[in-house]
């Protein structure tokens, strides 16, 4: 029931495509009449089911075809750790790991995440035992309001899993996609450097 190709389709492309389809009447409804249209035209408006693997657990969610991964995590699955601040890929508060890579969940369609591995802040600690990056954030007081913190931590985890020996320069580059409006940057950098093995 979907047109989402694997990868290579951004949310903006997608919205552009549906806009164009609606304009040409291909989306069916009033303009089409008669035969139900085939192929891409069957997108929406009803809910579709997306199967996700979230923090190692298969989860189903019913959502609109336009829903982002962030919408589904927060509204569909009640995982509110990833935050929405800008909803346009500029701030990083919605960062989660998709197949191990940090992504802005507000810029990924839920459909694109089907059958892929999603990891969120909720899956990081083992019971009450914090992940080393989480512990470092507490020890270094790397936040004030904490709203950017889940995104910062997921970016750091993604970076350090890819590059455990990240140098301070790697950390600066790897963390530059996450804004902190409270400006805890120096402490965030210290916390991530404390976990990174590179010197």
């Amino acid at each position: 029931m979907s047109t989402a190709r694997d990868g290579g389709l951004s949310r903006r492309d997608f919205l552009g495509v549906t806009g164009a389809l609606a304009g040409s009447g291909l989306l069916g409804g009033a303009a089409g009449g008669g035969e139900p249209p085939a192929g891409p035209a069957s997108i929406g408006p009803g809910a579709i089911r997306v199967g996700l693997r979230v923090n190692g657990v298969p989860r189903d969610a019913d959502c609109d075809a336009r829903a982002t991964l962030l919408d589904v995590l927060r509204d569909g699955l009640g995982l509110t750790g990833a935050k929405q601040a800008c909803d346009r890929g500029e701030c990083g508060t919605c960062t989660v790991l998709l197949d191990g890579r940090p992504v802005y969940a507000c810029m990924v369609l839920a459909l694109q995440a089907r059958n892929r591995e999603v990891r969120t802040i909720e899956g990081l600690a083992k019971g009450e035992v914090l992940h080393p990056v989480q512990r470092a954030f507490v020890e270094h007081d790397a936040f004030q309001c904490g709203f950017c913190t889940p995104g910062q931590i997921m970016s750091a985890v993604g970076l350090l899993e890819r590059a455990p020996a990240a140098t301070p320069e790697d950390v600066e580059a790897g963390m530059c996609g996450n804004l902190c409006r409270c400006a805890a940057y120096v402490r965030i950098r210290d916390a991530v450097n404390a976990v990174a093995k590179g010197k």
């Binding site: 509110t80 750790g81 600690a125 507490v138 904490g146 931590i153």
Partner: peptide
């Protein structure tokens, strides 16, 4: 701290 680094801390926009 632990609430904020685990995503357990609930903000108004998280309440539903």
């Amino acid at each position: 701290g632990p609430d904020k680094v685990t995503g357990r801390a609930k903000y108004t926009s998280d309440m539903a």
